[in-house]
Design a protein around this nucleic acid. Sequence first.
DNA 1: TTAGTTTGTCCGATATTCCAGACAACATGT
DNA 2: ACATGTTGTCTGGAATATCGGACAAACTAA
Lengths: 266, 266
Amino acid sequence: MSEGATGLIEAGAGAQPQPGERRRGIDRVIMLLEALLKHRAPMRIGDIAKMINAPRSTTYEIVNSLLEAEMLENVGSEGYVYFGRAMHLFGWAYSHHNAHYRRILETLDRMAAETGETVQLCGLRGNKYVVLDCRDSPGPFRISSDVGVEVPIPWTASGRLLVGHMQETELKDFIPAADYELPDGRVIAPDEFFADVDLARRQGFSETSALADRFTWCMAAPIRDSHGAINTTLCFVLPVDTPEPRRNQLLELLRERARALSLAGS
Amino acid sequence: MSEGATGLIEAGAGAQPQPGERRRGIDRVIMLLEALLKHRAPMRIGDIAKMINAPRSTTYEIVNSLLEAEMLENVGSEGYVYFGRAMHLFGWAYSHHNAHYRRILETLDRMAAETGETVQLCGLRGNKYVVLDCRDSPGPFRISSDVGVEVPIPWTASGRLLVGHMQETELKDFIPAADYELPDGRVIAPDEFFADVDLARRQGFSETSALADRFTWCMAAPIRDSHGAINTTLCFVLPVDTPEPRRNQLLELLRERARALSLAGS
DNA sequence: TTAGTTTGTCCGATATTCCAGACAACATGT
DNA sequence: ACATGTTGTCTGGAATATCGGACAAACTAA
């Protein structure tokens, strides 16, 4: 049971709609919000009901409650709903309640401005990797509005750092077997991945080239919390053909900034 | 019935704890999140229970559900909880799902960088005014991490614009009588306020000096959605003693940028 | 036109959630 | 030592939230 953060929504897919099955309103709310996040666009209430496998009448009831609380809001004129203003405020409160996170965002801004490259802040969500925030390079490439999209851990440089605290046996349980298959069909050998994780832990950074996508070179460095644990990583997403001297220079900057943001020493 | 967005939480204050009173989980969740937002800091579960007037056992149950969904997370080592990573992602999704909002945030960044002043994006939440986002002036003054804090509409310049679509009689119902009293004890005459609203509507901007606080001069300009309605405003928060020529220059900039962000014409 | 689908609302029944209260374990302070 | 206050967990029972299904209205597509 890899009961991750998004465990509930899985029920949406495979669960046989057992007759008489009844769920709590709270769980429905959670499933609904995660479904919206996964879908990344306004949805019709009927479609939401199908997606989270809930009765239509219940879905209407819940959506109306959330609309009234402004956690959802109507989008467009006919029947679509998406996240609302209240969610924005809750999320803002999350990202600003501690000075640490604020410093991280400032660093993100500064690095993007100084280098002109795409910079990301990454973390785990359940047993997946997610981008928590990003500053896109101003160039024409990469729209990367992929904040919040769940990606298999083995596809990413940051992922190799974020699981650094786990034993190999733990890792085997933690990462679904399917996650070793890349989008282009190649499969990463788990042992190779474990070796990568180990290497990343020892050198204190991680790089991947043309892994999840053929055109990018990613480099990640860990941000440690006050216990020394790695909760988030800082990460550059570069064109694969970035010349090596520049890459080294950027890696140096990345590691320095990530170190400065870590709370371990202070 | 001024059933605003935050209607539910009001029950927390005045409601007599009717013996057989029982509430839905969903409503408890909404009350809980709004209580956290209002409190603006991590809280203990016991205190949350008191604040939202819920049984302790129920509160534990709900908090644990939300923790598992990462909508809340533990803060510090002993018993405090606050908003979690999922909220950040939901909020991010809200603020980036449409190009319009993204353009607004970019404008906010640009204006702050160009002028060095504090810039805010403001809107309504129920029958209160809230700051939706801000860029603080780099100067030593004003911490203004007041995003999401509810403020009476008559205290603000933006408020005068945001209610511009309402009739005077509607306004009388909409704004609680208590909201005309300023923090320093002065009371705004409702008729004077209605005249302000009217003026703001006619001139397409609004200014207040030393109103909610003695040291600031605020100016706001409306951002109109595709129906021409005013959903949000752009706003400068200046020191009261800013010289008039500079104020005029900033006002001009503000109005121009707000107009550029409005969707009415295009 | 007819036939089919979807939307939003309403209803009554029952399976279940939410509640009150008790409990142990741990902090307090005096 | 005691009295008093927490925190986190569990329980049984009763009020009720969720569900299935029905309904009219609005849209499609022939």
